[in-house]
Simulated assay, not measured.
Amino acid sequence: MFIINLTYIKPIEEVEKYLNEHIAFLNKYYDNKNFICSGRKNPRTGGVILCNAKDMKEVEGIINEDPFKKNTIAAYEIVEFQPTKYAEDFKIFVE
């Protein structure tokens, strides 16, 4: 499991230009069952994605498709972790 932490490095006006493309990217990986949840930071300085992937290489490949990455809109920090305690409904993501 991975936490993808995006931090905007361009003004919000630039972020908005690529937002629809970014949402399409998110939808693709929700459909592929890689993304579990995502959302904006508050204040709006970036976003967070909870990602289920087999390894760091897969996550990096996914991120490279993000229009925010392709257009240098955001910087990315990836944190890998192993869920050891979770709500029962979350179990489907860690099996």
Rank of each mutant, 00 (worst) to 15 (best):
K10F: 08
P11W: 05
E88P: 07
Y86F: 14
Y8V: 02
I73D: 03
C37N: 10
N27H: 09
V79I: 15
A74F: 04
Y86L: 05
E21S: 14
A53C: 08
I49H: 02
Y86N: 03
A24S: 14
V94I: 15
F68N: 00
Y8Q: 02
E80Q: 14
D31M: 09
K33M: 12
I23G: 08
L6I: 06
T7A: 12
V79D: 07
F90T: 00
R40K: 13
N34S: 06
L6P: 01
P43I: 07
K33N: 14
K33V: 01
I3T: 09
K41S: 10
M56Q: 11
T72D: 15
G61N: 14
Y86A: 02
G61E: 14
V59A: 06
F90K: 05
N34D: 09
K28V: 09
N71H: 15
I36D: 10
N20S: 15
T45M: 08
R40A: 13
H22E: 04
Y18V: 12
A75D: 15
T84A: 13
N32Q: 14
E58H: 06
E65P: 04
E21A: 13
H22V: 02
K91Q: 10
Y18G: 11
I12G: 02
Y8M: 05
I78S: 05
I62T: 01
E77A: 10
T45E: 09
I36G: 04
E65I: 05
L6H: 03
E80A: 14
A74C: 14
N34M: 05
P83S: 00
K28F: 07
F81P: 01
V94W: 06
N42L: 13
Y18W: 13
N64H: 10
Y76L: 08
N27P: 08
I36V: 15
E65W: 07
G39R: 09
E14F: 03
K57C: 07
Y8L: 04
N42D: 14
Y30V: 03
G39I: 06
I23W: 08
L50N: 04
E60F: 06
K17H: 11
A24P: 01
F68I: 05
N34L: 02
G47P: 02
A74T: 05
A53G: 09
G61A: 09
K91N: 11
E88V: 12
K41I: 07
F90N: 03
